[in-house]
Design a protein around this nucleic acid. Structure first.
Lengths: 190, 190
DNA sequence: GCCTTCATAAACCGATCGGTACAGAATAGT
DNA sequence: ACTATTCTGTACCGATCGGTTTATGAAGGC
């Protein structure tokens, strides 16, 4: 009998991918067991609280990734470098639009009510971190706010349309345009 | 006994609102009956094909609304007026961001695979119609394409963030910015 | 007034839902 | 090697899922 022993840190990304593809309601336990090859016994061992705990831990895991890879650099590092890294990390993380934003997907249906706080904090911090980096890069505050909001809005919209249109190009085009616009503001106000 | 007699045209918007709020998987039959006050008998009378037929007809209904209210005007009417009407209709339809785009929500999870064609056609036609209006308004083709794509991307992203942040302002700010940018292009190239 | 058609309600179906119980296999500590 | 703990597979639970059936209520045509 094949028996693979997992640890929780290995399990979270596997389950996360199922939630990402199917949404909270669509990710039934049977779908999760089928796609992760993990038995119910394993899943309820790692997540005694069931689906809700799985989703909460996954949200925290995704949030943690963004915090270390993007938000902290934006908040602390040299702004131009951090912003450039943000665009790269965004493109890599979302696989050029072929991967959906789990937190954005959760925000749309009534799953949002369950996880309203972490969802809101994630997007607030992203916008605030980018806005702060732009300000530190010399952009005027009001414009930085708008630019940051526009960037996160554009990323989310491009993810939706990339899937809706089944178009691999739209995400890259959107990122390029947003990046060009932020860099124009950075050089203008400097 | 209270007995309200409905016709199919009255039923579709009611059911649509449930799908919009809960998503395809989240909209269970019991949720639909509870929120619409329609019995299962009525629902299966109007939609013998069950949930799948409901969703398909709802998509067609939403698509039809956009076709008559926005796409046809964009394709045929005087471009500046049609584009102005598009921004107004968008803000009104999505209730300043408090209402979610049902087709966009369907695009995110694996519901997309079931309704891939109508979802793709809806967004394609929106972008193409706006692009065409911009071109007829004097905007250069390549720029019109980018602007149209950017507008639809921005609308979808703003809808996601409006819900995620529970912020009533972001949708309006995004629309205003997109509108200003298209109008700037229209006056430039004229 | 009668009959047909449309619309509704309620009981019911097998399948699947999320979740539990528990026994056994793998691992780590000693 | 023995034991305690961690991890896994399976059988099972009540509840709910989407869907069906049936019986009857109301409305329109004649």
């Amino acid at each position: 009998m094949v028996r693979t022993v997992f640890e929780k840190q290995d399990v979270i990304p596997l389950v996360a991918e199922v939630f990402r593809e199917l949404g909270y309601e669509g990710a039934s336990m049977s779908a999760i067991t089928a796609r992760t090859r993990l038995s119910k016994g394993s899943l309820y061992h790692f997540f005694p609280g069931g689906k809700e705990e799985m989703a909460a831990e996954i949200l925290a895991h995704v949030d943690g990734w963004f915090v270390t890879e993007m938000f902290v650099p934006l908040e602390q590092d040299e702004p131009r470098a951090a912003i450039a890294q943000m665009w790269e990390a965004t493109d890599a993380y979302f696989r050029s639009g072929r991967r959906v934003c789990l937190i954005g997907a959760f925000a749309l249906d009534e799953t949002r009510d369950r996880f309203a706080a972490p969802i809101r904090l994630y997007f607030q911090r992203w916008i605030k971190a980018l806005e702060g980096a732009l300000v530190r890069g010399g952009v005027e505050t009001a414009r930085a706010r708008l630019l940051a909001e526009e960037a996160v809005v554009g990323i989310q919209g491009a993810l939706t349309l990339a899937r809706a249109l089944n178009d691999d190009g739209i995400f890259g085009r959107t990122l390029a345009q947003l990046q060009a616009r932020t860099e124009a503001s950075l050089s203008l106000d400097h």
